[in-house]
């Protein structure tokens, strides 16, 4: 079974890209969607006949939740006899990246999202093998090129694809590239490409009151100007 980790900011078009990709792959593709509180994507995958599992991190750190559950996802994919397993996550908290060494990592960004967005996205873009730029059909070629250049500045090694999530244009080439992903049958002893946030403080365990008295554990204080 081949595996892809797909990440990207909310509403960047991840689900559409994955659906278009699944069409082009013409293989049994399944998806694990990691979300925080709600998800509206299940019905879209169901409609397309793509088997899907949804994981809600709820009150847990979405990054830690991802790491703790992704291996179970691989086992699920194998039980289901999938040829392709895709994880979809909404960029977790932007600081993080769900990309794993040895697993093809894809970051989806929307070229309407602002010229400085690639710089703000962080490791999930920086450490991706493939960057998919969506919504390029809405702007001029000049603007697409400026945006793609911003992406290359943050991640010079990645291959950049423009995919139209509505018509599927570009998904074909992406599928060709994705098909070269390595086979994965377990994630045991593989590594995240980037650390998840380190925090175990009172707020992690449900504290809601604000004030020094309630702040315990690992935390960091900002230094404000006088």
């Amino acid at each position: 079974m081949k595996m892809l980790t797909v990440a990207g900011p909310p509403s960047s078009g991840k689900t559409s890209v994955i659906l278009r990709l699944a069409e082009c792959l013409e293989q049994r593709t399944g998806v694990i969607k990691f979300d925080c509180l709600t998800s509206f994507d299940k019905s879209r995958y169901d409609e397309a006949g793509v088997p899907v599992q949804i994981g809600f991190s709820g009150k847990f750190c979405p990054d830690h939740f991802f790491v703790n559950n992704v291996e179970g996802g691989v086992a699920w994919g194998l039980r289901r006899g999938l040829d392709f397993l895709v994880t979809e996550s909404a960029g977790l908290c932007n600081r993080c990246s769900p990309h794993i060494t040895g697993v093809t990592g894809i970051c989806v960004v929307d070229c309407l999202s602002g010229v400085h967005t690639p710089r703000k996205i962080g490791p999930m873009l920086k450490l991706a093998d493939i960057v998919v730029i969506t919504k390029g059909d809405i702007v001029s070629q000049a603007e697409r090129e400026v945006f793609a250049w911003g992406v290359r500045q943050v991640n010079a090694k990645s291959q950049v694809f423009f995919v139209n999530g509505v018509t599927g244009q570009g998904a074909f080439m992406l599928a060709k590239k994705a098909s070269a992903a390595r086979d994965v049958d377990s994630l045991s002893d593989t590594r995240l490409r980037f650390t998840v946030p380190a925090a175990a403080c009172s707020y992690c365990t449900g504290e809601t009151r604000i004030g020094e008295n309630y702040q315990m554990g690992m935390m960091r204080k900002m230094e404000y100007d006088l």
């Binding site: 010229v115 809405i138 070629q141 603007e143 090129e145």
Partner: peptide
């Protein structure tokens, strides 16, 4: 390509836009 799209979406001035495109 000059497509039918006639609007820009990036938050840049004309000078900044042209400069970034030239550099890219």
């Amino acid at each position: 390509q000059l497509s039918q799209n006639m609007n820009f979406v990036m938050d840049l001035t004309v000078a900044e836009f042209l400069e970034m495109h030239a550099r890219s």
